[in-house]
């Protein structure tokens, strides 16, 4: 494992001007009183070290946050190989934009925003590749009817599979806003931050998505306004 984590990293010599500009900013955040800096000290020091050319430091960042990112990515795909690919893409994108992290908000929150973007892009690509799934799936209809009778009785895995199957019938935009509000349990504010949309747009999109979802669900599972 250590051999994997400490490869020769000539690529970290490619730190650009943006990274050099970010280093004093992160140093200032670290030097600030703890109550003023929201980011975790380990994240701050490892991001600083990464920007300074330390590849092992970025491996530590990935190691600390990869399970959280994977948990989020499980909302975007139920396939383990695809999930791992999306987690990788998230961290690669994070590395490319690492100099843009202010250090004044938790690194995990910043990674969640990137993960949302990566997952949404994945959905959009898939939606272009193939049209939305068949609307008349008897097995799904039966599972939905069972879930409607007792939604709390399902195992978490079954509930996740069912919710994923239901939301997969929506367009990527509708699916994203409902995934964030329902599955992730985000507030409108959080959803707006993750998507880069305004709060008003999140509310409008959620309203429209609920209306479209109502047509797909049995009465017992239909969403109501939040």
């Amino acid at each position: 494992m250590n051999a994997v984590l400490a490869p020769p990293l000539p690529w970290f010599a490619l730190i650009d001007a943006a990274a050099h500009a970010a280093l004093p900013r992160l140093a200032a955040v670290r030097a600030a009183p703890r109550e003023a800096a929201v980011a975790d000290e380990a994240d701050l020091s490892d991001v600083q070290a990464t920007l300074g050319g330390d590849g092992a430091a970025f491996a530590r960042v990935v190691g600390r946050h990869q399970q959280d990112v994977a948990r989020q990515m499980a909302r975007f795909t139920r396939d383990q190989a695809t999930l791992e690919q999306l987690v990788q893409d998230t961290f690669i994108e994070a590395w490319q934009g690492l100099a843009g992290w202010s250090g004044r908000s938790p690194l995990g929150a910043w990674l969640r925003t990137i993960a949302t973007r990566v997952g949404y892009r994945f959905w959009r690509t898939r939606a272009r590749d193939r049209r939305l799934q068949d609307q008349d799936d008897p097995a799904l209809a039966e599972a939905l009817a069972r879930a409607a009778a007792a939604p709390g009785a399902l195992e978490p895995l079954d509930a996740a599979e069912l919710l994923h199957a239901v939301l997969a019938r929506l367009s990527p935009r509708d699916r994203l806003v409902l995934t964030l509000l329902y599955w992730e349990g985000c507030s409108v504010e959080d959803a707006a931050q993750r998507t880069g949309w305004s709060r008003a747009l999140v509310k409008v999109q959620a309203f429209r998505a609920r209306r479209r979802l109502e047509k797909l669900l049995p009465p017992g599972l239909r969403p109501e306004g939040r």
Binding site: A70, P151, P156, L162, E184, R222
Partner: peptide
């Protein structure tokens, strides 16, 4: 009900 289903789904760990 959808909220409850989502809450159950949230407990799923990959």
């Amino acid at each position: 009900p959808l909220g409850k289903l989502a809450a159950r789904a949230r407990a799923d760990r990959p």
